[in-house]
Amino acid sequence: MRILVAPDKFAGTLTAVEAAEAIATGWRRRAPDDELDLAPMADGGPGFVDVLHAALGGELHVVTVEAVSGERVPATILRVGTTAYVESAQSCGLHLLGEGDAERAATSGVGELVLAAVDGGAARVVVGLGGSGSNDGGAGLLAALGATADGPLDGGPAHFGGLSAVDLAPARERLAGVELVMASDVDIPLTGLFGATKTFGPQKGIAEDRIAEVDGWLERLAHATDRRTALEKGAGAAGGLGFALLCLGARREPGIELVTGAVRLAERARAADLVVTGEGAFDFSSRSGKVPYGVAEVAAEALRPCIALAGQVLVGSREMRALGIESAYSLVDLVGEERAFADPAASLADLATRVARTWSHP
């Protein structure tokens, strides 16, 4: 059999590349004659650059930028021809926030990454969005690219109280002639009941009783900058980084579609007999542009069955099939939560061995 292995990262434990390798290791124990094609995946969040490098090759350039914690951290730019790929989570990721305060976290480092890519000669810059610990509407990015205002843009939303005017002209001039693409599957607006703060603020540590005030600060940023753009789909992605990029003329492209195209997933699925995907937690939110749903869609178009291996499976069989997955298998159910976190690669390999007994046929 020919097996296409296309998982996302298992957040906090395995990168997508490590997950694909673990699945392959376990599968080969049971079915050594099967042909395995490894296609690690991402949706624009953490792992975006690594996955594209594995698929496209290119040159990696490491730069030092400001993180949401205020510290300087290394971040990687992938250069393929005249296109540069950057991953916002490398400077504003939730994992970098630590004990920091999302109300004072800025996205300056993402702006520094974009600037470094442009200074390196890129004619097209693709910014992967996802996994952010910031909630500043991308103001820090705008400042790093040269935008000015009558108040601080690089101190997080807590400093927007007196903001009334933002001049984007210097930032737009800095990016003149550069095609800007934001890779994101989040389609929410910047503010309001379904905006960035209300939807994702709590997971970044913004208390429920602070949501309204923080959202109000982003409203002030929007009125000072471009209120119409704040209402566009995707403006609320990555704590509002989508808003800043849209203000600078970025084109929005679903992250999972960008990656599936880059790794030629449709072509590889047609050559396979079975498609295997996976992620840390497989639940109904996977339909919102996450990797398993995107992979399952590609598998369905190729008329190939798709199964999922996950840290946890939190949907029933009916919901699973609505997501295009024939069967899903839980790591925690097989080895227990303690071992799943203590030794994730070996545990995932064991699960793959078990699954291969059912799905691999001579």
Rank of each mutant, 00 (worst) to 15 (best):
A281H: 14
E267G: 03
R287Q: 13
A272L: 07
E267C: 02
D273C: 00
Y293K: 09
V315T: 11
L258A: 11
V295Y: 13
F282I: 01
C247P: 07
V313Y: 01
E253P: 00
E253I: 15
R287L: 15
L309F: 05
A238I: 10
A269F: 08
A308I: 13
A262C: 06
L248F: 10
A296T: 14
Q312H: 03
F282D: 00
A271C: 03
G234F: 02
G249V: 11
A281I: 13
G278I: 06
K290G: 01
G242H: 01
E267S: 09
E297M: 13
C247W: 11
D283W: 01
L274G: 03
A266G: 14
V275K: 02
R287P: 00
A300H: 12
E301M: 11
G240T: 07
G236N: 11
E253L: 15
L274N: 02
S286T: 15
R304W: 02
V263P: 05
E279I: 03
G289A: 07
Y293F: 15
L265Y: 06
E301I: 02
V276L: 04
F282S: 00
T277S: 02
G311S: 07
A281C: 15
G234N: 06
L258W: 06
V259R: 12
R287D: 01
F282E: 02
A250Q: 06
L245I: 03
V298E: 05
G255N: 04
E267R: 11
